[in-house]
Deep mutational scan, measured.
Amino acid sequence: RLIESLSQMLSMGFSDEGGWLTRLLQTKNYDIGAALDTIQ
């Protein structure tokens, strides 16, 4: 599930440099909407 969510976020133009996006998705239970809300 992480790989699916991460690949979708990467395709939106986000980077996972340093693993920050992986950690964010894990804390949000791989919910892309919740991750995007946090980023904004």
Rank of each mutant, 00 (worst) to 15 (best):
I39Y: 05
M12E: 03
G18S: 09
L6T: 00
L10M: 12
E4D: 12
S11R: 12
R1G: 11
Q40N: 14
S7L: 14
F14W: 09
E4I: 11
R1S: 12
R23F: 10
T38I: 13
S11M: 13
G13P: 01
F14Q: 02
E4V: 11
K28M: 14
Q40G: 10
Q40D: 08
A35P: 04
W20K: 03
L6D: 00
K28R: 09
L6A: 01
L6E: 00
E17Y: 11
M9V: 04
L6K: 01
S5G: 08
L2S: 05
T22N: 04
E4P: 07
T27F: 13
E4S: 12
D31K: 02
R23G: 03
W20F: 05
L36P: 02
G18P: 02
S15H: 13
D31G: 03
L36V: 07
L2W: 07
L25W: 04
Q26F: 09
N29H: 09
L21K: 01
D37K: 14
L25Y: 01
L21T: 00
E4A: 13
Q8V: 15
N29D: 10
L24S: 00
M9H: 01
I32S: 03
A35D: 02
G13H: 05
S7E: 12
T27K: 14
Y30P: 02
L24N: 00
I39R: 02
G13C: 11
Q26K: 14
F14E: 04
I39A: 03
L2F: 08
Q8T: 12
G33P: 10
E17I: 13
A35N: 00
L6G: 00
Y30L: 07
D37M: 13
D37F: 11
K28T: 14
I32Y: 04
G33Q: 15
I3K: 14
A34I: 08
G33A: 14
D31P: 03
E17M: 11
Y30H: 05
Q26H: 13
W20S: 03
G18F: 09
A34V: 07
G13W: 09
G13V: 06
I3W: 15
N29L: 09
A34G: 06
M12H: 05
L10D: 02
E17T: 12
R23T: 09
G13S: 04
G19M: 05
L10I: 13
S5Q: 07
R1T: 12
L24R: 01
E17S: 10
L25G: 01
L2I: 07
A34Q: 11
W20Q: 02
D31W: 10
A34M: 09
I3S: 14
N29V: 06
M9C: 11
L25M: 04
D37P: 02
L25E: 00
T27G: 11
L21Q: 00
N29W: 11
L2A: 08
I3P: 09
T22F: 04
L24F: 04
L21D: 00
G19R: 04
I3V: 13
R23H: 09
L24V: 05
L2H: 06
W20P: 00
Q8L: 15
L36Q: 02
A35M: 05
K28D: 02
K28S: 11
S11H: 11
S7R: 15
R1A: 11
L24K: 01
D16M: 04
N29G: 11
T27S: 15
S15C: 11
G18W: 08
G13M: 09
T22I: 07
Q26D: 04
E17R: 08
G18R: 07
A34P: 03
S15R: 08
A34Y: 06
S5Y: 09
S15Y: 09
R23E: 08
D16Q: 05
I39Q: 03
S5L: 13
R23V: 08
G19E: 06
I32R: 03
T27H: 13
A35F: 08
T22V: 05
L36Y: 06
N29I: 08
E17A: 10
S5H: 04
S7H: 14
T38R: 06
Q40L: 15
D37W: 11
A35Y: 04
I32V: 13
S7K: 15
Q40T: 12
L21M: 06
L21Y: 02
A35H: 04
S15W: 06
R1K: 13
T38H: 15
E4N: 10
D37V: 13
T38D: 12
T27A: 15
A35V: 15
G18V: 07
I32E: 03
Q26V: 13
L36A: 04
R23M: 09
S15A: 08
S7V: 11
W20L: 04
R1N: 12
A35E: 03
S7W: 12
T38F: 15
L24H: 02
A34F: 06
Q26N: 06
S5F: 14
W20I: 04
K28Q: 10
A35W: 08
S7N: 14
A34D: 08
T22Y: 04
I39T: 04
T38N: 08
F14R: 00
A35T: 12
N29M: 09
I39D: 02
N29E: 08
E17H: 11
I3A: 15
I32L: 07
G19S: 05
D37G: 09
L10Y: 08
T38W: 15
Y30M: 06
D16E: 03
R23A: 10
R23I: 10
L21I: 05
Q8S: 08
G19Y: 08
S15E: 10
D31F: 06
